[in-house]
Amino acid sequence: MTSRGRAFDAVLTDLDGVIRFYEMAELEELERSAGLPAGSTAEIAFRPETDMPLMRGEITRERWIESIADGLADRVPWARGHELGTALAETKFRADDAVVGLLRRARAAGLRVLLVTNATPWLADDLALLGLTGPDGCLDDVISSADLGIAKPDRRIYETAAERAGVAPARCLFVDDRQENVDAAVALGMTGLLYGEPADLRAALAPLV
């Protein structure tokens, strides 16, 4: 599948912070009502000890919410913490149309486009809501940590992604908003892109699309 004259043949992209963004206003209002600074719930929810068991598919959504309530229990009553955890789990989200458009152009140019994400067990439902999968989607395949039981930056998830893309790691562009995840991809021989805004991806894809 390698095409002579281009730098890579597959784009492996993260989801959150690259394609998907959350609308946090409702949760932040609940936090203010509870006397907590904005972001307090996410701070607990995305600690490795709270977050990674979910990302590896080891716990349920409800157990994750309960662990958020446990983490907030020294600041708010447990029931209020559970309410905040539920609100976080149900936070509305949207896809960045500019990024989705670039990924569609990459596919049209003959590149394989795969999602490589540390994800919840309900990722498939979220992707359907975003319109990223199905006949009109922009993805060729989805590599989910919850399905594999391993998460970035474990090298095995990158190796699986390259294998599923059907190309060597050296022929992959890896896009992520976390430096440690990009570093792990680069260590495997991939081209790494630390994502900050759509212009970063547009520049990386410019020679190809």
Rank of each mutant, 00 (worst) to 15 (best):
G131N: 12
G57R: 07
D125W: 11
A109H: 01
D140K: 11
E90T: 04
R4T: 14
A206G: 12
L36S: 09
R171P: 04
V182C: 00
V182D: 07
A203V: 11
S144K: 09
Y22N: 10
L208M: 03
K152A: 01
L15G: 05
P37T: 14
L102H: 02
P198W: 05
W78G: 04
P153K: 09
R156T: 09
L111T: 01
V100N: 02
L84F: 11
V99F: 00
G131F: 12
R75S: 07
Y22C: 06
R105Y: 04
S40E: 08
L148C: 02
L72R: 05
L115F: 00
A165K: 15
D141V: 02
D51S: 11
A89M: 03
G39A: 10
A184I: 15
T91V: 11
P53V: 12
L27W: 06
A162M: 13
L194Y: 05
A73N: 05
D176H: 01
D176G: 01
L127Q: 06
L72W: 06
L88P: 00
T13H: 10
I59Q: 04
R171K: 04
G17D: 11
E23W: 12
D183W: 03
W122V: 13
I65S: 06
T86M: 04
D16P: 09
E31T: 01
G189Q: 05
A87H: 11
L103P: 01
K152G: 05
G134N: 03
F174K: 05
P153V: 13
L188C: 12
R104L: 14
E180Y: 02
Y195M: 03
D140S: 05
L27R: 05
E43I: 10
P135S: 09
A165R: 06
G101S: 04
L88Q: 09
D74R: 15
L188Q: 13
T86V: 09
V18E: 07
S40A: 14
D136L: 08
Q179W: 11
R80F: 08
L148Q: 06
L88S: 07
A42C: 08
M55H: 06
V99A: 00
M24H: 13
L54H: 13
F46G: 03
T41K: 02
E197G: 07
R6D: 09
A199K: 10
G81D: 14
L12M: 00
R75T: 08
G17N: 14
R164Q: 06
P135W: 11
E29Q: 14
A25T: 10
R47D: 13
G110E: 09
V182G: 04
A69C: 11
E26W: 14
D136M: 01
V18C: 06
F93T: 02
K92H: 01
S3Q: 15
G85L: 14
A203F: 05
I150S: 07
L12D: 04
E83Y: 09
V186W: 07
L15I: 13
A124R: 15
R105H: 07
R47L: 12
V175L: 08
A73S: 15
G85F: 02
F93E: 06
G101N: 00
S144D: 06
T86N: 07
